[in-house]
Design a protein around this nucleic acid. Structure first.
Lengths: 203, 203
DNA sequence: TTAATAACTGAACAGTGTTTAGAAAAGGAT
DNA sequence: ATCCTTTTCTAAACACTGTTCAGTTATTAA
């Protein structure tokens, strides 16, 4: 049945168009200033049409949240060519922080906003998030097994690492560091990450 | 002029009533489900009346944000009886995390939400926040001067500490750790805080 | 060409924050 | 107690929001 097949493809294309347009608007104007009606306007459809492709607004946010995790995971993979697991972990932290600072809207969806998390909790679909977390955890445990860092519970060391980088990114993108002059920020970020990373070094 | 004096007192009381009611509703039902109209209903005034006491909704959030910092600062003060600055710093971290987990709505206002931060940026009034940060920074620098922790830039060590505890609290209250069974959470939190705090110990 | 199915939309609903014109209440002066 | 002024309050409207649904238009099958 080539016809229903094409139908499905068109449906996917439409979903894609909606997501693309939504994200574009989010990036340009921030979440607060983008409504379903404005997305509908931009793609020249009625607001009601969007509901034929997404159950509600949260489902759009959830889809974009997943997109974000795809991007992050792709980035994480680029560290695999680093042989030393400790150096690789270091790189992953820098990468995470940069990703967050350069893609605040994605970061917001993935780690801060409430609505997409609601959807995920209800339907128990943390897959993409867990995949990235697992990648990090494996790296930590590799460091430990190689005797490059002090022994500790892997879960705890990983969470500690994540908490730090998340803390840095979220404090900055939610503008809790505006008293720090912009030109000093990179120094503070790099410095505090390196400071924290000392615990991952064997004494 | 006892009359204009009383007028001002009444004005303050009304502001207080609005703030109190607003926070009560926020705590009971979460920010998403509380509107100005519902606050107005609860105090049995018209929504328009609120605008005689607050410029807009953000001003209410800003006032409550300050209330949150008062609470936090009061808590911080309770650590002053601890003589050892390193132990005091430790206590401050635990205190911060507990405050965040037990008062997620206040924490949200103080460190996550966008709208109150906007107000603050525009009017450059970080006072209460900076006071708490300063308190923490002084403690860190005291540890360093006493030779209890490795030497480092105070600003960097402080920010690193803050990033960690903020990371922990915000990941949890924004439900990014729901895969971790609730009974393990305290262990992970304490463990990862202690893990991070190793950098504050002299080797 | 007609019947059935799918895609789409106008209009409405119930809600939001905010503004404004005018009513109600309070205070001061006669 | 009356009049006038000032303050306090609110009904109603405005321009939005997400969402639903009856009804229209377009596409496909017979």
């Amino acid at each position: 049945m080539g016809i229903t097949e094409r139908r499905e493809k068109e449906k996917k294309e439409m979903r894609g168009l909606i997501l693309e347009t939504a994200m574009k608007l989010f990036l340009e104007e921030g979440f607060e200033n983008v409504s379903l009606r404005r997305i509908a306007d931009k793609i020249e459809y009625s607001p009601a049409t969007i509901y034929l492709y997404f159950k509600d607004k949260d489902e759009i946010l959830y889809a974009l949240h997943n997109e974000g995790f795809e991007k992050l995971y792709a980035l994480q993979q680029t560290t695999l060519d680093i042989k030393d697991p400790l150096k690789r972990l270091w790189k992953q932290g820098e990468l995470y922080i940069n990703f967050g600072l350069e893609n605040p809207e994605y970061y917001n969806l993935m780690f801060i906003m409430r609505s997409p998390a609601k959807k995920i909790c209800e339907e128990n679909q943390w897959e993409t998030g867990l995949r990235s977390y697992g990648f990090l955890k494996d790296n930590v445990s590799e460091c430990m097994e190689a005797g490059l860092m002090p022994m500790a519970e892997v879960e705890i060391a990983t969470f500690s690492f994540w908490a730090h980088v998340h803390g840095v990114v979220s404090l900055i993108i939610r503008e809790r560091c505006v008293i720090i002059p912009e030109e000093f920020l990179p120094h503070i970020i790099k410095g505090s990450f390196d400071f924290m990373m000392e615990v991952f070094k064997k004494k």
